[in-house]
């Protein structure tokens, strides 16, 4: 699980152009500057590419925080 969080940190820093962001389970859109709907699309696309997974539209809009997202990635990777 830690490797997922490390990679998520990398992607978050890249997408939001901020070296300070660290992925934690509680982190949510409201906590990050510039995380609007458009940035969310960029973030989801970057995750799909970075982890080699695909989300349906329903899944992509359902994550409430990074913890749920990390669990979603873990589930897809073990499937």
């Amino acid at each position: 699980m830690q490797d997922i969080y490390d990679k998520l940190t990398e992607i978050l820093q890249d997408v939001f152009d901020d070296d300070e962001i660290v992925a934690s389970p509680e982190l949510a859109a409201a906590d990050v500057d510039g995380w609007d709907s458009l940035a969310h699309v960029r973030f989801i696309l970057a995750i799909e590419r970075g982890f080699g997974v695909k989300f349906s539209a329903a899944e992509a809009s359902a994550f409430a925080n990074v913890g749920e997202l990390a669990n979603g990635i873990a589930a897809k990777r073990s499937a």
Binding site: L38, V41, I44, L45, R49, F55, S56, A57, A60, S61
Partner: peptide
């Protein structure tokens, strides 16, 4: 199709 549905992206963002 996913990306069109998700955000009306006219082609795969890749």
């Amino acid at each position: 199709p996913q990306q069109w549905n998700l955000a009306k992206l006219p082609f795969d963002a890749a």
